[in-house]
Simulated assay, not measured.
Amino acid sequence: MSINTTIDSPLGALLLAGEEGAGGLRLTSVRFTQVRRAATHPAFTEVERQLGEYFGGTRQEFDLDLGDTGTPFQRRVWEAVAAVPYGKSVSYGEIAAAIGAPRDRIRAVGAAIGANPLLVVRPCHRVVGADGALTGYAGGLERKRFLLTLEGVLQQQLVFA
C-alpha cells in the first residue's frame, strides 16, 4: 500500500513516500515540499529518526529499505551516486566513468541524477561540476550548499553585517 507523510527538516518540509508491506516500509521518494501535514505516519518513524540524526551531524549513512524504481541506466547512475562517501564530492564526469558511460553520455548521466527520487538519502547533492561549481539540484542550489557544508565538503560562509 502506498503511503506518504511530511516531516520538518532544517531545509523545510520533506515529503516522504513509500510502500508499506509485510516486511515494513520501502522508501520510494524524498522531496522538498511547501505542504506540511499535522501528523507523521508511524511507518516513517525510522526514516524520520535517521534523517534527524543526519541533519544533527551524527549519521553519515542511511540504513533504510529503498524502493527499486527507475530505468536500468538510472539505477546504475544512482548506485554510483550512493557510493560517494559522506564528506566527499565527485563530478558528473566521474560518475559517468564509474558506470562505464562514454563522455558523450554525461548529459544523460546528469539527467539521471536529476531524476533521483530520494533526495538527501541518495546523495545526489554530492555531485558537482567538473570545476567544483555547484550545479543542478532538484532542491535548489542553496539546499545543496547547506548539505555540502553540513558534510564538510564546503566551508561555512561568514556573513558580515
Rank of each mutant, 00 (worst) to 15 (best):
M1R: 05
T6S: 06
I7S: 07
I7G: 05
S9I: 02
P10L: 07
A13E: 05
L14Y: 05
L15W: 00
L16W: 05
A17T: 02
A22W: 06
G23N: 04
G24R: 05
R26H: 08
T28S: 13
S29C: 11
V30T: 11
R31P: 14
F32C: 13
T33R: 00
A39L: 08
H41G: 00
H41I: 02
P42L: 01
A43Y: 04
F44D: 00
E46H: 06
E48K: 00
E48R: 04
Q50E: 03
F55G: 06
G57E: 15
T58E: 15
R59M: 14
E61D: 11
E61A: 06
F62P: 08
D63A: 11
L66Y: 14
T69E: 12
Q74T: 02
R75Y: 02
W78D: 10
W78Q: 12
A80S: 08
A83R: 11
A83C: 07
Y86T: 00
K88P: 09
S89D: 10
S91E: 01
S91T: 03
Y92S: 02
Y92E: 06
E94H: 01
I95Q: 12
A96M: 02
A97I: 04
G100Q: 00
G100S: 01
D104L: 02
D104R: 08
R107Y: 05
V109S: 13
N116T: 01
P117E: 12
L118C: 10
R122W: 14
R122E: 14
R126Y: 14
V127H: 15
V127P: 08
G129P: 08
D131R: 04
G132P: 03
L134D: 04
T135D: 12
T135V: 09
G136Q: 12
Y137F: 15
Y137R: 01
L141P: 09
K144P: 15
K144I: 07
K144C: 11
R145V: 10
F146M: 05
L148R: 11
Q156F: 09
Q156K: 14
Q157F: 11
L158D: 13
L158E: 15
V159R: 04
V159H: 15
